[in-house]
């Protein structure tokens, strides 16, 4: 399931982050940073909605276009009924809501690219968000509850990120994409998502190289979404042991890049959440590609399709990974 695109470009991006991401090494690449997790709102859900609105406003300010000129807005987040997207997005001629857990960002890019490349629409706005506290409240424990966290657990990133895709030539082109399938490897520990999601990366990356005929060396950078410290090692080790794909230093993980894991001890194994990879790719990576420091990047966003209800009913956590290849022009 690999598609090649001829005429789709990332025209502009915008990123807004929370206090923990601000303390990380990529701070200077973000458009706006908040010092307080509340983002000036009185509930965590409203805080996330505000992040979405801010990211959209910044993007339109940067592109100097009006909100009505966007054909399709594709949005997604972690909250039930994708609340942050449905309440935060107030622009565009039409809206598509998607859910792919932490792989949402690439899923949005792929769907938008298909619509643009087939000339059904001229442009699309991809919006993604997550908030550490709103996710904790929904998926784990009350936010003030001080449950000790395992070293393998990941930390949901706080932020909102947007990318405007169109026909207009810009510095970064969307080259091709591979849609992944849901994988169940019998994993059921919500405190070790890297281990849950690593199999889907292995499956999608193998499929991508097979269907495109490309090799690791064809990419300057291979980037996974939010596997964290342990998940990325599993991927490297498995591929080295059971395939001919050898991932070297050109392989990185967004969850590890977003934070300074040595100083920020509470992050544990790394960042996660739909916005985690988007914050890294739409700011740092996009800027490197525009400056031609990176020519071609393979971005594999990973998602754990985790439902607390199904876990309590004794089921496993499925995972998914979608890949997109970005090219600097």
């Amino acid at each position: 399931m690999t598609f090649h695109f001829q005429n789709v470009y990332i025209e502009e991006t915008s990123t807004v982050c929370g206090p923990y991401e601000k303390q990380g090494p990529l701070r200077r690449y973000f458009d706006q940073c908040y010092d307080d997790l509340s983002i000036g709102e009185d509930s965590w859900e409203k805080s996330e909605i505000r992040l979405v609105r801010d990211a959209i406003d910044i993007l339109f300010r940067k592109t100097e276009t009006s909100k009505e000129k966007v054909d399709v807005v594709v949005g997604g987040d972690l909250l039930n009924q994708i609340t942050a997207s449905t309440y935060g997005i107030d622009c565009g001629k039409s809206f598509v809501g998607v859910y792919g857990a932490c792989s949402t960002c690439v899923l949005e890019l792929i769907l938008s690219s298909c619509l643009i490349d087939s000339h059904h629409i001229n442009n699309a706005l991809c919006v993604v968000s997550s908030h550490n506290m709103s996710s904790e409240k929904q998926f784990r424990y009350p936010t003030e509850y001080g449950i000790p966290r395992k070293n393998s657990s990941t930390f949901t990133a706080t932020g909102g990120a947007c990318a405007l895709l169109s026909h207009s030539k810009s510095g970064v082109r969307i080259d091709c994409a591979t849609l992944g399938k849901m994988i169940d490897m019998g994993q059921n520990d919500p405190n070790d998502m890297g281990r849950v999601m690593a199999p889907s990366v292995i499956d999608t990356i193998t499929k991508h190289f097979k269907e495109t005929g490309r090799k690791v060396t064809d990419y300057d950078l291979i980037l996974t979404g939010d596997l964290g410290l342990y998940g990325q090692e599993i991927v490297k080790d498995y591929l080295r042991s059971y395939s001919d794909i050898y991932l070297d230093d050109s392989y990185q993980d967004c969850g590890v890049l977003l934070y300074d894991l040595k100083k920020q001890k509470n992050i544990k194994a790394g960042g996660s959440g739909p916005v985690c990879s988007a914050l890294v790719v739409y700011s740092y990576i996009y800027s490197l590609m525009k400056r031609k420091k990176l020519k071609r990047v393979l971005f594999l966003a990973t998602g754990a399709l985790f439902s607390p209800t199904m876990i309590h009913q004794g089921n496993n956590i499925k995972s998914i990974c979608h890949a997109i290849s970005l090219e600097a022009i």
């Binding site: 000790p148 395992k150 070293n151 393998s152 199999p199 342990y230 599993i234 498995y238």
Partner: peptide
């Protein structure tokens, strides 16, 4: 993908919990 093979590899990269010091 083989589940047993995966378990073997994944167990090699398990996070170490400080159970003793925590206790």
């Amino acid at each position: 993908m083989n589940k047993t093979q995966y378990e073997v590899i994944a167990n090699r990269h398990k996070a170490v919990e400080n159970k003793f010091s925590n206790s």
